[in-house]
């Protein structure tokens, strides 16, 4: 890990070491907000911002954070950032903040943010931590958007709310897949993505 270039660090976090498909972190929100692409996009942007900034700040302070209370301090920093994002959303993107409802608040407990803070930012310089946070955020976003694309397209026949496949119930020809509208369908889609990424990166497979 130590001799990786910054570029590798960044891109590996998106695909090869993707937090959702390899570490299986952040599954809860991957199920919850992927019914529509618009909400998934906002959630992705928020989480990427929070992860990148939180990792940088924690990395900057890493020499000063007492080891005994480091988790508490990480949580405090992350929670502060999330509340700021939530407040800004409420002020400038009211409709979206209503749709995301509690999930923005739940970024605080999103394992990816904590995982990167504890696993990477605490032992690496700020610029690397920033890239790592950004990469992991984008990796999360990539999965979220892929899942949301399938769920919205096959469940509701729309993409970003624009009708692509006209539904039978609205005088079209497409019979919407009810399962795709339910959060549980994201399990199947995430599993398929894990399979796909493992075929591309055989190193992800367990030996034996």
């Amino acid at each position: 890990m130590a001799d990786e270039t910054r570029g590798q660090l960044f891109f590996k976090a998106i695909f090869e070491r993707n937090p959702i498909t390899v570490l299986v972190l952040g599954i809860c929100s991957a199920l919850a907000v992927t019914g529509h692409m618009a909400t998934a996009l906002v959630m992705s942007v928020c989480l990427t911002m929070v992860t990148a900034v939180a990792s940088s700040i924690i990395s900057l302070l890493r020499e000063r954070i007492p080891n005994t209370v480091r988790i508490g301090i990480q949580i405090t920093i992350i929670a502060t950032l999330v509340i700021l994002v939530d407040q800004v959303l409420k002020a400038y993107f009211y409709e979206l903040s209503r749709q995301l409802s509690i999930y923005v608040g739940l970024i605080i407990t999103n394992c990816i943010v904590m995982g990167r803070a504890e696993g990477f930012a605490m032992s690496n310089p700020p610029d690397k931590a920033f890239l790592d946070g950004l990469g992991n955020g984008l990796g999360y976003s990539f999965i979220l958007m892929s899942v949301a694309f399938c769920r919205e397209l096959f469940g509701a026949g729309t993409l970003f709310g624009v009708t692509v496949l006209p539904l039978v119930s609205r005088d079209g020809w497409y019979q919407g897949n009810g399962l795709m509208l339910l959060p549980a369908s994201a399990f199947f889609l995430v599993a398929l993505l894990i399979w796909l990424l493992r075929e591309i990166y055989p190193s992800q497979k367990e030996r034996g």
Partner: peptide, 27 residues
């Protein structure tokens, strides 16, 4: 890692809490 002593830990935590709460309240 910083050298650990109880007063220093308490001070760090208090300072962080102060900065964070000011930020949140301000926003």
């Amino acid at each position: 890692m910083a050298k650990e002593s109880t007063p220093k830990t308490v001070l760090t935590v208090l300072l962080l809490a102060l900065v964070c709460s000011t930020l949140v309240a301000g926003t």
